[in-house]
Design a protein around this nucleic acid. Structure first.
Lengths: 156, 156
DNA sequence: CGCAACTAAGTTGCGCGCAACTTAATGACG
DNA sequence: CGTCATTAAGTTGCGCGCAACTTAGTTGCG
């Protein structure tokens, strides 16, 4: 026989658990690195998107970050209270809220320039390893997202 | 030139983000699969450890799961309220609290037997891919944990 | 036009995850 | 034996992340 059932049945737990553990370990490193910017990791992600794309509605922000308004609304409120972003109703569509950087928020970009390098150093990975891992994880996420939607996918 | 600075600087974000996204996608699948057991994923993890090791103190549980008492205490309280575990002060060391399964908690193991297979199916990965990914993630977690502790590790 | 279906944000509630702190018990050491 | 550092659990506070719901604005269609 190949793999005993008990071993096999434990692999799923190991993969999700190690994923989870790695994600939380990253959180710890980001917490240290972002401390003097006064940002949490999710807040930093929002600013990354805004630095790249300029202003955009909450909806689009959520698509980039895989987050819904239930998470983003209070988070953006905190960023606004910190003076880093402004939120204003779109004139074209009164349902939509445009999020844009304040001068302070835009200026923070330079102070954050060091962050990626420090994180990359903490991983101990080189560029090709990072790319490979990222690709695998994105395929995995796509497969997991398909669960429920697509119970019997055509084998590639 | 090799990789432009901007590309390079973005890789860290991609790896942590895709890690995060995969972890949350897993959460969604587990939420569906664990729904009729009335468990969250962290609660399921606690039960997995108890099913394997029998009774053990909160401290040990936390070492297995990478969680502290701040997270475990309320979680265990909920599991106790659900009738799945009992908590009692150790006689040998009055500081310690032993967590053990109730008959109901032990019985839940059989109803949970299907879970790993369903999760494994949702990942679309085979055994070797899972092992490889898990190994990489564990090395990554170890590297991230060393951050701050070991600023200049000897290059293997 | 009028009304139903849809869509974007926001709110509420709950369970982590973690920092910071408190309480209580143990161990070490003079 | 007393005192002081250490350890285990628990509590508090806060920020996600997500389900479920509400509110308000838009679109489609007869």
């Amino acid at each position: 026989m190949t793999t005993p059932a008990t071993d096999w049945l434990r692999l799923d737990q190991q993969i999700c658990f190690s994923l989870n553990a790695a994600s939380r370990a990253f959180g710890g490193v980001y917490r240290v690195v972002l401390k003097d910017l006064g940002l949490t990791y999710p807040q930093y992600l929002v600013l990354l998107v805004l630095w790249e794309h300029g202003e955009l509605p909450v909806k689009r922000l959520g698509e980039h970050l895989r987050l819904d308004s239930g998470t983003l609304s209070p988070l953006l409120k905190r960023l606004e209270a910190a003076g880093l972003v402004r939120r204003e109703r779109s004139a074209r569509d009164e349902r939509s809220v445009e999020v844009r950087l304040t001068p302070e928020g835009a200026a923070l970009r330079e102070r954050a320039a060091e962050v990626p390098r420090r994180i990359a150093a903490a991983t101990g990975l080189d560029v090709t390893e990072v790319q490979d891992l990222r690709d695998r994880l994105e395929r995995l996420t796509a497969a997991l997202d398909a669960y429920g939607t697509d119970p019997a996918p055509a084998p590639s």
